[in-house]
Design a protein around this nucleic acid. Structure first.
Length: 918
RNA sequence: GGGCGAAUAGCGCAGUUGGUUCAGAGCGUCUGCCUUACAAGCAGAAGGUCGGGGGUUCGAAUCCCUCUUCGCCCACCA
């Protein structure tokens, strides 16, 4: 077989993926084997592969492939998520480009467009996963809005409603004015913002010049005097006309049209004079009461808080407590509504600018301060959210928090890294009800049906039934008094859709149809799944809620282990983003370096839980490694084999040593995997292949040019190669399959995918490994001498061992690797020899006239100084009575051995120096 | 404001119960090599008072305290 000197992944990867597919090697069905199940975190159906996916999916594929090789029935279920809000946004954008507004379409028409979009762009990402080598069981590909999943979602909604865990209510929710829908708390992202604190005048509703008794001990400020919030006595403001006013600080002056009260703290000395009064909302002219509540911070601003129940969560609470009116001054798109009376139709931010001008002009603006505060943004549309009172559907979460917290805290479900247990606990201990309704069309429509003829009833009080289908809804409705003859046409289904995460939280169950067909064979076999690989950013969105649903519906955990990946950043530590343009296209990388190279590049720098600073050069390292593997294979397969020859002594030694090394590393890799230290596992195999196998083993057994290799060594080398490929396969599936198939003739349908790493669990000969490390050191030292003295590798040298040659078993290996013609045991080294020490043994290479006495003396003296230094440190310890008496015996003995070694080393160094000087 | 985590070689990191094996591997850097598998390579080398300070201990990268600097998560001071 002719093999190119450079490995080209492109010719290999597609071929083997097709082979795996053709032979259905990824497919899984319940059987007698131990299951190993992973459900993919479903990417957005219309999404495309980005570096975050590459990281996440590579880790999953590594785990799945490894489990499969271990003989488990590995099942990796792929699928996509309908991504309600994101997809709807994309569809709306495309419609807009065609000049169509969403509001011009019926729900059905819009959904037709949405499905068209999904069919057109959907599943691209799944195809891309194939290029990465992901070994998903594609026959199981699911979609959160496919038939089975949709039925599961609706059924669960109805069930939770029947259990009283879902309710409909008028609440202050996070409103996304761009998409015009409610969001859950988790979908709001807070950003620091430089803004302003506006101090507004609220005149007291009284005749100019009014006073009351309290004014005697008050400080009266004119309009021009600065206000000091730390003052501990009453402060009364008067303008030039003698009118008194309160000063209210706000970041959102545009909401004054919704003001219904001003609140002070009853303990605030500054503002006691306002007690019981009424003030006039600036510009608006509405007279509102002063109310008192401990909620108000005395020290903040002026201690006066404007109360706008419709547009602030806390104000809403105050409104409820004091039975205040709620004036919603915004339309759903956050323009000013009729109810605002002023600025009607203006955008909220334009309004802020305008109202500031108008307040100024009307002398109602006391002052403006710079102020940093946090503003909530919609996770998906990135517009500031508006707290908005609206009728939504909620899940009572306390019940779910109660069932989901213990299994994580007591490690039934393990988090890697475990630090996320804290995050998880904090969230569950402060759980809030989950707003699950969205004012969107793309998603699972809420299965609530309103009864007819309720036009006069306020929204919140309208009667409805919740049922899995319209037929069942009719049945239920007919049981209600007055609706005995209601028909399907008369029932009006809730317009809203469910939060996407309401379907995602069922994913590990619904994929095996465990809701619709509870207790079926698949759910019994595959559930609980084994490992979940995901980012910590969705620990609340998804991980926690899957745990909740798992215990609620199957009474068991959805997965045993959760591996949290980091966030992929660029090498400067910046988050990868489209706008920065710092996110490489994974497919370009695959073109350039091969999927195996990209996978390796990703894994080389991916400790669990830490952010990953991705650098393309890591893929290059991956590609180079592929090339290395390729060329090792070329080398070995290029040898001619002599069936009758006996192995050389050097080869026989190397074979024994590598057997130990292979076992040792396999055990190490296994240990790393058991701790989910995947990059460490990869690095261990990398070192084994490149350093131990290629640089040492192969170089030792390599026959001289033109010579054949003995069959015994050749066969065992192929066996080692096979073992190495198996260790590598989870990380680099393509090249390992290609080479494994070429080690020998394989039957059709056979694959490395199912070959166990059989050396795991067998003991390695540790002393052999230690000896060989010594041998390597001897060889390296000789090579270093060659480099220093400019002696060509081809020129043969003699090695002298002063005293007994404890490594004589390795003579032939040393001779070959360091090009040594003879190894002699001597009692005293030759005068012209350059010496070096390995352990306590002195070695020397006679150099004749190449010997540089001065340089050699300097080197020996440096070494002597170092040895004497270490002896001093050891002696300090040993001369310390406390150390000798209190430290464990073994430690003391070790120090004594160090002392002896150092002394013998010093002695031989001194002797060597003396010999040179004579 | 609360909580969590991190700081070790130029870079990104590992370092488990304090002690032979502890100051490490990878990349990068430097030096010499196109040595008949691989220059996407080979051989060799240099690089760190383990963020600062204090403490516990015979002994600290490791345990405790403290300070500094970063990162993340949570939280209703408008």
């Amino acid at each position: 077989m002719e093999l190119a000197s450079k490995y080209s992944p492109a010719q290999v990867e597609g071929k083997w993926y097709q082979y795996w597919m053709d032979n259905k090697l990824f497919s899984s069905k319940p059987d007698g084997r131990e299951p190993y199940t992973v459900v993919i975190p479903p990417p957005n159906v219309t999404g495309v592969l980005h570096m975050g996916h590459v990281l996440n999916e590579t880790i999953q594929d590594i785990l799945v492939r490894r489990a499969r090789m271990e003989g488990k029935n590995a099942c990796w279920v792929p699928g996509t998520d309908h991504a309600s809000i994101a997809t709807e946004a994309k569809v709306i954008k495309r419609l807009a480009e065609q000049g169509i507004k969403k509001s011009d379409l019926t729900r059905e028409e819009f959904l037709k467009h949405a499905w068209a979009w999904t069919d057109e762009h959907g599943g691209i990402i799944l195809k891309q996963l194939r290029q990465l080598g992901c070994s998903c069981d594609w026959d199981r590909t699911a979609f959160t809005m496919d038939e089975e999943r949709s039925r599961s979602v609706i059924r669960v909604f109805c069930d939770l409603y029947d259990k009283g865990l879902i309710y409909r209510g008028l609440r202050m929710v996070n409103w996304d004015p761009e998409r015009q829908t409610a969001l859950s708390d988790e979908e709001v992202i807070y950003h620091d913002e430089h803004s302003h604190l506006f101090y507004l005048r609220y005149y007291v509703d009284e005749p100019a010049g009014s006073t009351d008794g309290e004014e005697a001990d008050a400080q009266v400020l004119s309009a021009t005097e600065p206000f000091d919030p730390t003052v501990k006595h009453q402060i009364i403001h008067r303008d030039a006309q003698g009118r008194r006013y309160a000063v209210v600080a706000t970041t959102r002056p545009e909401t004054i049209m919704g003001d219904v009260a001003v609140c002070i703290n009853p303990k605030d000395p500054k503002n006691t004079w306002l007690r019981g009064k009424r003030v006039i909302v600036p510009l608006v002219g509405r007279v509102v009461p002063i109310i008192e509540d401990r909620y108000v911070e005395i020290e903040f601003g002026t201690g006066c808080l404007k109360v706008t129940p419709a547009h602030d969560v806390n104000d809403y609470a105050l409104g409820q407590k004091y039975d205040l009116e709620s004036i919603d001054i915004f339309n759903p798109d956050a323009t000013l509504s009729e109810a605002a009376r002023l600025y009607v139709g203006m955008d909220r931010f334009d309004c802020r600018k305008q109202i500031v001008k108008d307040l100024d002009a009307a002398a109602l603006m006391e002052k403006v301060e710079d102020y940093d505060n946090k503003v909530g943004y919609s996770e998906r549309t990135n517009v500031p959210i508006e707290p908005r009172l609206s009728l939504q559907w909620f899940i009572r979460m306390q019940h779910f928090a109660d069932i989901a917290l213990p299994p994580v805290m007591n490690d039934d479900i393990r988090f890697y890294p475990p630090k996320y247990k804290n995050t998880y606990r904090t969230w569950l201990e402060n759980i809030k009800d989950w707003c699950i309704s969205r004012q969107l069309w793309w998603g699972h429509r809420i299965p609530a049906y309103f009864l007819p003829n309720q036009e006069d009833v306020p929204d919140a009080d309208r009667q409805y039934v919740v049922a899995e289908s319209i037929e069942k809804a009719v049945e239920k409705a007919r049981q209600l008094k007055g609706y005995e003859n209601v028909t399907a046409d008369e029932l009006i289904q809730d317009e809203g859709a469910l939060d996407t995460w309401f379907s995602s939280w069922l994913w590990p169950i619904s994929l095996f149809n465990g809701i619709n067909n509870a207790g079926n064979e698949e759910i019994r076999y595959y559930y609980p799944t084994s490992d979940l690989v995901t980012g910590p950013d969705i620990i609340f969105f998804w991980v926690a809620r899957m745990i909740m649903a798992g215990y609620e519906y199957l009474g068991d955990m959805p997965f045993r282990n959760v591996y949290f990946t980091g966030i992929v950043r660029d090498k400067l530590g910046r988050k990868m983003s489209k706008s920065l343009g710092n996110s490489p296209d994974p497919l370009d990388l695959i073109d350039k370096y091969g999927a195996d190279g990209v996978r390796m590049g990703m894994m080389l720098s991916a400790p669990a839980g830490n952010d990953i600073l991705f650098d393309e050069s890591l893929c290059e390292q991956g590609r180079n490694f592929n090339n290395k593997i390729w060329n090792c294979f070329r080398l070995v397969k290029g040898w001619t084999v002599d069936a009758d020859a006996a192995p050389t002594e050097a080869a026989a030694t190397a074979v024994r040593w590598f057997d130990a090394k292979l076992k040792q590393t396999a055990a190490l890799v296994d240990d790393h995997f058991s701790k989910y230290r995947i990059s460490d596992a990869l690095m261990a195999v990398y070192n084994l292949f490149w350093d131990e196998f290629s640089a040492w083993y192969l170089e030792i057994i390599k026959p001289a040019y033109g010579c054949a290799i003995d069959k015994g060594t050749y066969d065992v080398t192929l066996h080692y190669f096979d073992c190495l490929l198996r260790l590598l396969h989870p990380f680099m599936p393509f090249i390992t399959e290609e080479l494994w198939q070429n080690i020998e003739e394989r039957a059709k349908g056979e694959s490395i995918m199912f070959q166990p790493v059989s050396v795991i669990g067998t003991d390695a000969d540790e002393s052999l490994i230690r000896d060989f490390e010594t041998v390597k050191e001897i060889i390296s030292d000789i090579r270093a001498i060659r480099l220093q003295k400019g002696i060509a590798p081809k020129e043969e040298l003699v090695l002298e061992v002063v005293g007994e040659n404890k490594m004589s078993a390795y003579n032939s290996a040393i001779s070959k690797m360091a090009n040594i013609s003879a190894i002699n045991s001597v009692s005293e080294k030759s005068p012209s020899a350059v010496a070096f020490m390995v352990g306590t043994t002195e070695y020397a290479v006679p150099l004749g006239n190449l010997m540089d006495v001065e340089a050699e003396l300097k080197k020996l003296n440096d070494e002597l100084a170092y040895a004497e230094g270490s002896l001093r440190i050891v002696m300090n310890k040993l001369n310390n009575a406390n150390f000798v008496s209190r430290a464990p015996e073994a430690i003391v003995a070790a120090e004594r051995k160090k002392q002896a070694d150092a002394e013998s080393r010093i002695a031989s160094l001194k002797a060597a120096i003396a010999a040179l000087q004579s």
